[in-house]
């Protein structure tokens, strides 16, 4: 009898353990209308503020740490030919993206603005064409190149030569800090 009860408890434990796998990451296939708009006023361009400093606008990437969004960003990074200049993170014509030091700021809001508004000397302005939800996906992916996304959410190794700080950590630190 006792044996039976123990077996029952074991089975229940196993079932409840398998049920935890039902907690799936949410894939937002159809972007909410508000996230489809095209705009770009996320980050401040100057540190000087008349009338004293204001609090920084808090902009968070809705796709942060979402594995599916990051992999979508990876696909768009190819499709929209970001690789043409930035290669697969290592840089070429454009600066590398696997670093910790960013010319125009590395926060999600800065990256969003860089993509939407462009930057002098080569970075095109993609705003007005790429829907906002895709910009955030690309931002999420670019942040993953710099190791700024949870390891478990970053895409698996691609077919391309791709380097991330996780693979060449010491070198990156030596160069940029």
């Amino acid at each position: 009898m006792r044996k039976l009860a123990a077996a029952g408890i074991a089975v229940l434990a196993l079932i409840s353990w398998t049920l935890t796998s039902c907690q799936r990451e949410k894939r937002e296939l159809r972007a909410a209308p508000v996230r489809r708009a095209i705009y770009g006023d996320a980050a401040r361009q100057s540190e000087l503020q008349p009338g004293g400093p204001q609090t920084e606008p808090q902009v968070t990437n809705p796709d942060h740490a979402n594995a599916w969004s990051i992999s979508e960003g990876q696909r768009l990074f190819e499709w929209y030919n970001c690789v043409g200049c930035h290669s697969h993170g290592g840089g070429g014509i454009g600066p590398p993206l696997i670093k910790k030091h960013w010319i125009y700021g590395g926060q999600p809001a800065n990256l969003f603005d860089t993509i939407v508004k462009g930057r002098p000397n080569g970075m095109p302005a993609w705003g007005g064409r790429i829907p906002e939800y895709q910009v955030w996906q690309i931002v999420a992916y670019v942040r993953s190149l710099a190791g700024e996304q949870p390891f478990a959410a970053t895409p698996v190794r691609t077919d391309e030569l791709e380097q991330k700080p996780t693979t060449i950590h010491n070198k990156v630190q030596g160069e940029t800090r």
């Binding site: 296939l29 209308p33 489809r36 696909r75 829907p131």
Partner: peptide, 16 residues
């Protein structure tokens, strides 16, 4: 107008 309604998950961009 709504590609995700016809083929959920497809890669066509949603534009408004």
């Amino acid at each position: 107008a709504d590609p995700q309604n016809v083929k959920p998950g497809n890669h066509m961009a949603q534009i408004d």
